[in-house]
Design a protein around this nucleic acid. Structure first.
Length: 499
RNA sequence: GCGCCGCUAGCUCAAUUGGCAGAGCAACUGACUCUUAAUCAGUAGGUUGAAGGUUCGAUUCCUUCGCGGCGCACCA
């Protein structure tokens, strides 16, 4: 089939037609044309451009549909009107070709808004056919719904399903909303390294890569946290970064190996201040993206307009299981988890078990926006101890919606001696087999030793917010090019690819 | 990583207990100057995801592998 198209390209060139010209001046798009269409009928010719999505030849006349970013319009080509030579070129066009047309607005006998074509120009000859999808009266025939192909060939998905674009527009509005919100409050957007000699700032396994000139292993960042805190040391008081982070873990409808995270750091504030800000910011940004502060998600009406619940983790677990996790014997917690079908790692301490118990018994029930506060200190190595229970709990919160985490925040630990001790605890866990434990970062400690103001820090997963704002059930629906395994037999770059 | 399900023409899907791989659309040729899932006549299109096995014979049964979906685990 591609061979036939190649031959058409050759024939077009023989006819003196450049199948790939440089530009086309259009006077409007289809949306603009259709707006007040009847006033334009039989008026001045207009020029539009787009992709041919339907062609209905009728002998010496051809009807077609042209699709651009704004929508579709029917085209009517008449041999008498465009001439013999142009009609011959028209007959070499295929579904999917991109053309520019000049025509006069008219309505057909059945009333459809149509452009009566006076002249047209081929703007791009396509070699590869589009799936043929037809529709009538809002009913679609042979819809292109292969999910795998949809993600691998997103461009085809976008051509065939222009409405899919709305999700990505909502995502863009969300990010713009977050950015505007922080900018208006004096936060400065910065960019910090993605390639790092040492990774940190979150509990996760990293991707590794290699720097040839330095002949050293590098990691792709798993969080933005540590460099941003160095900026607090340097005197920036309100900074944020919206960027890609990478975690070498499983993929599913909530996880992609690379995802977008917003982190902000706010000097002289604590996690309670951050909670107020996050609540207001998330409400504003999702409302901007979704057009409402109540969003339908996973069968629930999520109300972002109402005040977000604020509950401590310990209190929630007590409420759902009757167990006081701070006083219950560790063996009892372990037994409870095993009974719940959770595999408990050998190195697990009370803190890990509290978190696991929370994930098991409480997390799925948090449908409406809820700030879960005051996590175990042991699982929060970068957070300050809680002012009321400094040896057991951290000043930390996570935002949960529909049973999933959307954000994480703490009163940032700025006591360098305590921070070093926490890193050493993490190192011990790593020895014991916890490969997500954080690595001691001497550079970072040196910065903290130089003095970091008290501050609140927040991390928010943008992709999940985008899912919430657009009603998308899978993270792949809010990523234009979600990560996929390469197709069999399709080449991947080899490791010696130094340029 | 584990479990279940799927993979047939460019697209959407058929194929009886294991018995000649088919249809619609798209494509190609021809007819048709207000059609709209245009219509009509004709043509071509396939290593049935890959490899192996059982069998006279495999799209169908078995094994392994690849890719995907869903669920679980890990995590955001």
């Amino acid at each position: 089939m591609i061979e036939i198209r190649r031959q058409k390209v050759a024939r077009l060139r023989e006819l003196g037609v450049n199948p790939y010209p440089y530009s086309f001046r259009r006077t409007m798009n289809t949306a603009g044309l259709l707006d007040g269409f009847d006033a334009r009928i039989d008026g001045d010719p207009v020029a539009v451009a787009g992709r041919l999505m339907a062609i209905r030849p009728m002998g010496k006349a051809v009807f077609a549909h042209l699709q651009d970013e704004g929508g579709r319009i029917q085209l009517y080509f008449k041999k008498d009107e465009i001439g013999e030579a142009a009609f011959a070129i028209l007959e070499l066009l295929d579904l999917g070709d991109i053309v520019g047309v000049v025509g006069v607005p008219m309505r057909t006998r059945t009333g459809e808004a149509t452009l009566s074509v006076r002249s047209f120009q081929l703007l791009c000859k396509t070699l590869r056919p589009l799936p043929s999808v037809k529709e009538k009266d809002g009913q679609t025939f042979d819809a292109w719904e292969d999910v795998e192909a949809r993600y691998r060939r997103r461009y085809v998905d976008l051509i065939l399903h222009p409405e899919r674009r709305r999700v990505f527009e909502a995502r863009a509005r969300l990010i713009t909303g977050l950015r505007r919100y922080l900018d208006e409050r004096g936060f400065l957007e910065v960019e910090t390294p993605v390639l790092q000699a040492i990774y940190g700032g979150a509990m996760a396994r990293p991707f590794t890569t290699h720097h040839n000139a330095l002949d050293m292993r590098l990691f792709l960042r798993i969080a933005e946290e540590l460099p941003l805190k160095k900026l607090l040391v340097g005197g920036f008081e309100r900074v944020y970064e919206i960027g890609r982070v990478f975690r070498n873990e499983g993929m599913d409808r909530n996880h992609n190996p690379e995802f977008t995270m917003l982190e902000f750091y706010w000097a002289y504030a604590d996690y309670r201040d951050a909670m107020d800000l996050v609540e207001d910011m998330v409400r504003a940004a999702v409302t901007a993206a979704a057009g409402s502060n109540v969003v339908e998600y996973n069968g629930h009406a999520i109300d972002l307009g109402a005040p977000f619940a604020r509950r401590s983790m310990v209190e929630l677990i007590q409420e759902h299981t009757g167990v006081d996790v701070l006083t219950a014997p560790v063996d009892g917690l372990r037994a409870l988890l095993i009974k719940g079908g959770v595999t408990v790692a050998k190195f697990a301490e009370r803190g890990h078990m509290i978190e696991a118990l929370f994930d098991l018994a409480v997390c799925p029930k948090l449908v409406q926006p809820t700030f879960v506060t005051d996590h175990p200190l042991a699982i929060s190595p970068l957070a300050k101890g809680h002012r009321d229970r400094p040896t057991e709990l951290a000043e930390r919160f996570e935002l949960f919606i529909d049973g999933r985490e959307f954000g994480n925040s703490f009163s940032e630990l700025n006591d360098p001696i305590d921070q070093r001790r926490r890193f050493e605890d993490q190192a011990r866990l790593r020895e014991a087999g916890d490969d997500e434990a954080q690595v001691l970062d001497e550079d970072f400690l040196e910065a903290i030793e130089t003095g970091m103001p008290p501050a609140a820090g927040v991390g928010i997963g943008i992709d999940r917010l985008a899912m919430l704002a657009s009603g998308a059930p899978s993270i792949r629906d809010v990523l234009l090019f979600p990560h996929m395994r390469p197709e069999e037999g399709r080449a991947t770059s080899d490791e010696s690819g130094d340029a």
